[in-house]
Simulated scan of single mutants.
Amino acid sequence: MRILTGVIIATAAAAVQAPAAAQAAPRHCVSTRPTPDFYAAGRISTTPVTDDNGRCRTIAVSGIRDAADPSDTCQTFLVALTNPGADPTYTDPVRACAGSRTVLATGVPKGTEFRIIYQGDYIDPAPQVVRFTAWY
């Protein structure tokens, strides 16, 4: 298991918020398809993503589907905002389903490094792999 590390300053971490309710992400965000990195305590974390897009201040997900069961299109997600030498800051979990973008965090400053984490529904015979698009 790896320890989460990254590049967000402590004062900026306090400004990042989980959305009050699921909402659409702004259309000036860019997308990526992060890959699973590790499993721990029932959750799967993606590889780190660095937000280098200053025009978008949210982190959202869309296009959600279980790689082994394409009919499973909902998952619970949260974001780990990482800071070198400090513990990560986590957003509240948000249930997201395919069909639209679901915002996981708002007020995210440019340069923030983050991981998207999802609740794994199963680990046997292998940890669940959920495919999704991340918007930031």
Rank of each mutant, 00 (worst) to 15 (best):
M1C: 09
M1L: 10
R2E: 14
I3M: 14
T5M: 14
G6Q: 13
V7F: 14
V7P: 00
I8E: 12
I9Q: 15
A10S: 15
T11E: 15
T11Y: 11
T11A: 15
T11R: 15
A12T: 13
A15H: 04
A15K: 14
A18G: 15
P19I: 07
A20S: 09
A21K: 00
A22L: 04
Q23G: 03
A24L: 06
A24P: 02
P26L: 07
R27N: 09
C29R: 01
V30I: 10
S31W: 02
R33C: 08
R33H: 11
P36T: 12
D37P: 04
Y39A: 11
Y39S: 10
G42A: 10
R43W: 13
I44S: 14
S45V: 09
S45N: 12
T46G: 13
T46P: 14
D51I: 05
D52T: 10
N53E: 06
N53D: 12
R55N: 12
C56I: 03
T58F: 00
A60E: 02
A60C: 00
A60P: 05
V61D: 02
G63F: 01
R65P: 02
R65K: 09
A68K: 14
D69G: 04
P70L: 07
D72E: 11
T73V: 07
T73C: 02
T73P: 03
C74I: 05
C74Q: 07
V79P: 07
V79S: 04
A80R: 13
A80W: 12
A80S: 15
A80E: 15
A80K: 13
L81H: 01
G85I: 08
G85T: 10
D87C: 10
Y90E: 13
Y90K: 10
Y90G: 11
Y90I: 13
T91F: 06
D92Y: 08
D92E: 08
V94T: 12
R95H: 04
C97M: 05
A98S: 10
G99F: 00
R101C: 03
R101A: 07
T102Y: 00
T102V: 04
V103S: 03
A105W: 05
A105H: 08
T106H: 06
G107H: 09
V108E: 06
P109M: 03
K110Y: 09
K110T: 10
G111N: 01
T112Y: 09
T112L: 07
F114N: 01
R115I: 05
I117A: 04
Y118S: 02
Q119V: 10
Q119C: 04
Y122A: 02
P125S: 09
P127Y: 09
P127T: 11
Q128L: 08
V130Y: 08
R131S: 12
A134D: 00
A134W: 05
Y136D: 02
Y136W: 07
